[in-house]
Structures are given as structure tokens and as C-alpha cells.
Design a binder for these strands. Structure first.
Lengths: 211, 211
DNA sequence: GTCTATAACGCGATAGAC
DNA sequence: GTCTATCGCGTTATAGAC
């Protein structure tokens, strides 16, 4: 069957989610998928190749519906709320955890690093698009680097997902705090030209400290 | 010798940094430490126990000098700059990476989760203390949850460290974007009572959405 | 406290029958 | 395309000499 490939990919995702990257062995994945262990190597050549395919598949499956909802967001508060919804859904689905596990493994595996970076980029692209759209009409638009901010948001979210795995209460408190911080941004957004000019001046003065 | 314990802990830290959590085996750690493999089990009982001890040691070694510098910070821009300095230093030392690796492994290991959560708390505590001090004189002090924010900052920093391992340029862009965002907070901080009242009203309106 | 030797097992990967 | 069987190796952990 041609769907043995798919069963192995799904099995890899489920195994990583349940037992982490260290538990994602050819035998373990094959058992979860309900297929023979040798088929991992027939279809993917090596365990690493299967993991890379699974990481991209898990991320794509999650980013695509997320990107649609992202396009419907009209302000920053909604954007934060969507992030929070995503986090709640991920507690059950756990596809971001697959990415987090491989991101961790990628630190000492250049081969894995390439696939992981590409998966992360799948998140970054629609988030950057949404940020650019939401900030386009804002007076602070030109002062914010949406490309960098999208990367910070994506990477930070991965960190929060990992933190949630060891301290659920702490992660909740962290998300609440970010909600409040989001309000600050909106207030700046509504300030008018005088404060924006002050902001611009402040940024220019600190710009030389950025490299 | 009594310092065989210490050599094993240092060996564990170096091994995790160089080869990740999957490469941190009893044989590999002992080789790095220059001692016999059986001593891992004599001194720590199991590899996991050694890893837990190493995680706490690596974090403590990094947090203590950091906490001192943290106490000298007088505004948010300096706080961000210190975070950036820390990040630059960590590229060489890599102690945060040890924590990141174990945080990843802790997702499917409750025993590891406890030690990892405790290590992360070592970061959170001085950061929360600094945030409380810096925001105490600010008009937005009561509107910001410093406890949650310290957790978000710490977890987010771990995520950025992991991201840096697979996309150094992207991580740099992310940090630059956060620098700019820091200026926004300062501007709000300097607004005066009128804007603060607007902020307070906005927060009250959105407070019911927070749970 | 440190060493050698080894037990018991799981791992990635392959050969070859079907 | 799928299976069984297996090789060679690395793993945790322990037993026992020193």
C-alpha cells in the first residue's frame, strides 16, 4: 500500500508526542503505526529522514488552518487571543511539541536543523504577514520590524510550549501577563501624532545601539 | 577523590552542550570527564540522576553572576541589553542550552520535569525581582503582572536560544525586533497620567477576557 | 573509591524469502 | 511492498577484583 508511508509519518508524530525524541525509534514508531520495523528503512532510508518528514507534515497540518484564521484577525488583541487559542488546542493535539522536540535535537544535528528551520519558517511566514497587515495602518508601523517580531513570537511560543510541559500553572501566568502587555501596545497605537513623534525620537536615539 | 562527582557533573554539562541530550550517555559523559564509566552509577545511581544534578549546577553557575548584574539595572532598556549580553555569552558557554535540552527531555519524563522546572525557577526569581523593582515607580506598575512576565521572558528566552541553533540570522533579527519593542514600553512609561488613565480603562475592559 | 568484565537488552540497518 | 531473521554495535547497570 502507498499509505504505509502516511501511517509511518503519523506513527512518528504520535510517538514523538508520547515518548519524546529519544523514544522515537524505528521499532517504536513502527509499533505505533502498526507496520513492520523494516518498512521505516524501505520507505525513508533512515529514522532521521522519517523524523524530518514527520516534522514538516505535523507543522503543515497545523499551520494551514491557523493561517486561515490568522487572515481574519483585525487587531493585535485578537492576534494574542488567537495565539492563546492555538496554545489551548496544542495541549491536546501536540503538533507544536513535535517541532519543539526536533528543534531540540537539531541543535547538534545539522541535517535535522535544516528541516526544523524550514518547519519553523512555515509558522513565521503567515505570522509576519498578519503583523504587517495589522500594523500597516498604525503610526508605529515603520518603527517595528515585523519580520524580526514574527520570528521572536514564533520562537518564544515554542519556549512557552516547552515550559508548559514542566509547569502548567506558570505557563498560564506567563500567557496572562502577555495578554496585559498586548494592551500596552494598543494604547500606544491610539496615541496620536505627538506621542508618535516622541516615540520616533526615542527610537532614533537608541537606533545606534542596535546592530 | 571527592571531586570525581564534580568532574562527572562538568563532563555531563560539556557532553550535553556538544552532543545534545541523546549523546549524553554514561560512556560519553565519563569519557569527557576522564573517569571510568562505572563511576557514574557509583556516584549518582543512574544517568538520569547525573543529568538532573548537572542541569541544576549549570543553571546555578550562570544565574548567580547574572543576578548580580541584574540588580544594577536601572531601566527596561538596560534590562533588554543585559538579556542580549547574556545571549551573546551563552553562544560560547552554552549553559542555557543544557537547560533547554533537559527541558525538552522533561516533556515525557516527570522525574526530569521536576528538576528542570526548579532550574528554570532559578532564572525566573531574579528576573521577577528586577522587573518588580524597575516597574515599581512606573505608572503601569499595578497593571503588569511581573510574576507572569518573568516566566514569559524566561521561557521565551529558552525558545530563542533553541531558534538560534537552527537559524542564527533569524534569531538576531528577532532580538533586534524585541529591542525596538522595548522602546515602546518606555514611551508608555513616560506618558503621564492622562494616557495612564486611558490604559487603565482599556485594561479594565479587556480584563474579563482574561481568566 | 576505582577498576575490569560482563550480563541483558535495544538500537539502526540489511539480506533474502515471499 | 512486506515480511522474518539477524548482524554488529552501543546502551544501562551490576558483580566482583583490587
Amino acid at each position: 500500500m502507498a499509505d504505509t508511508r502516511q501511517r509511518l509519518i503519523d506513527g512518528a508524530i504520535d510517538t514523538i508526542r508520547a515518548h519524546g525524541l529519544t523514544g522515537a525509534t524505528a521499532r517504536g514508531i513502527a509499533a505505533t503505526a502498526g507496520v513492520n520495523q523494516a518498512l521505516v528503512f524501505y520507505h525513508f532510508g533512515s529514522v532521521n529522514e522519517l523524523l524530518k518528514a514527520a516534522c514538516l507534515a505535523a507543522t503543515r497540518a497545523r499551520v494551514e488552518p491557523f493561517a486561515e484564521r490568522l487572515d481574519e484577525v483585525t487587531d493585535l488583541r485578537q492576534l494574542l487571543a488567537l495565539g492563546r487559542t492555538l496554545h489551548a488546542e496544542e495541549r491536546d493535539r501536540g503538533n507544536v511539541m513535535v517541532l519543539a522536540q526536533l528543534l531540540s535535537g537539531a541543535q547538534t544535528d545539522p541535517d535535522l536543523a535544516e528541516a526544523t528551520s524550514a518547519s519553523l519558517q512555515l509558522w513565521i511566514t503567515p505570522i509576519e504577514r498578519a503583523l504587517s497587515r495589522l500594523l500597516a495602518s498604525s503610526p508605529v508601523a515603520e518603527l517595528i520590524d515585523t519580520a524580526g517580531l514574527a520570528r521572536a513570537v514564533s520562537a518564544g511560543f515554542i519556549g512557552l510550549e516547552l515550559y508548559e510541559g514542566v509547569d502548567a500553572d506558570g505557563a498560564k501566568a506567563a500567557l496572562d501577563a502577555l495578554d496585559r502587555l498586548g494592551v500596552l501596545i494598543e494604547v500606544v497605537d491610539d496615541l496620536g501624532p505627538v506621542a508618535v513623534r516622541a516615540l520616533r525620537g526615542k527610537l532614533r536615539r537608541t537606533a545606534k545601539n542596535l546592530r
